[in-house]
Design a protein around this nucleic acid. Structure first.
Length: 274
DNA sequence: TCCTATGTTGTATG
DNA sequence: ACATACAACATAGG
């Protein structure tokens, strides 16, 4: 479910817990979301710690806590990835975790819950004075000044033979873009999802750059703020149901698997060019 | 029963 | 080594 804006929306669901102590940590230790993570150490470190702040970068979230017993500069770094079905929510403090509630941070006035039915999500953890590599090495935000037309063009050249739809899903360059955002971007830029990434000319690359930024901005503003329904001028509201019409041309939308993912496009405005 | 799902990753192949 | 394609992961819902 979660892409850039949905992730930021879920991150903010835990805002009521910032500035408050964690009294108890409850986990399902054998859940797949803890693969590669020392869950016992996570419990030890976060119990009694003060939850200070949070951030989101692409689809990755970070929660930073200060431990009582460690040196003043040390922090506990909790990374959360929501996978396909992860969600963050708040429950009353006496809440008991259900089957899919794999991590619960219990505080005096509330419980912060991470749920994930399909277990494609992930929990990361570190204790250190500076951010761990899995956070510090994340690629630059698509709305930051370091994502430029040249950055984009260089990446497309390296992935020249892959369909542009598959390339937009690569998190190493397009953090936060997922299946619906990729389709929305290509539809707005009038680029066919099967178009090889290396075959885009300079005007197409500029259009792609512009629409990547626009879709990120719009998604964060509309969905990321309060999960508002996007307007019908987006592809978003039409892409899920087969047989629906392109909101710009009125022509029938097409669906096919491209890059291993269900893809929706408007053949009336997205043409393969050779 | 079969198919689908807003994601990543390990592995095979070129 | 690098780029590409795809099965696998686990569960719920239509």
């Amino acid at each position: 479910m979660p892409e850039l804006a949905e992730v930021d929306y879920f991150r903010k669901q835990w805002n009521p817990g910032l500035g408050h102590r964690i009294d108890e940590v409850l986990i399902h230790p054998k859940a797949r979301v803890f693969r590669g993570t020392d869950a016992a150490r996570l419990i030890r470190a976060l119990t009694g710690a003060l939850l200070e702040r949070s951030e989101a970068r692409g689809k990755q979230m970070l929660f930073v806590a200060r431990e009582k017993t460690r040196r003043a500069n040390d922090r506990a770094w909790l990374g959360l990835h929501l996978g396909m079905t992860g969600e963050l929510r708040v429950e009353p403090p006496d809440f008991s975790p259900a089957r899919h509630d794999h991590l619960v941070l219990r505080q005096a006035a509330r419980a912060l819950v991470f749920q994930d039915a399909r277990l494609f999500g992930r929990v990361l953890f570190a204790e250190s004075a500076t951010a761990p590599a899995w956070w510090a090495k994340l690629p630059p935000d698509l709305l930051s000044v370091s994502f430029t037309v040249k950055t984009l063009a260089d990446f497309l050249r390296r992935r020249a033979r892959a369909p542009i739809k598959a390339v937009l899903l690569m998190q190493e360059r397009f953090p936060g873009i997922g299946n619906w955002m990729a389709d929305e971007i290509l539809w707005r830029a009038a680029i066919h999802p099967r178009q090889p990434a290396g075959s885009l000319d300079a005007p197409a690359i500029r259009a792609l750059y512009r629409e990547i930024r626009a879709v990120c901005r719009n998604a964060l503003r509309v969905i990321g703020t309060d999960w508002s329904e996007p307007p019908d001028t987006w592809l978003f509201n039409h892409r899920w149901k087969k047989g629906s019409a392109c909101p710009r041309t009125g022509a029938k939308l097409m669906h096919a698997a491209i890059g291993g993912r269900t893809t929706c496009w408007s053949p009336a405005r997205q043409k393969l060019v050779t």
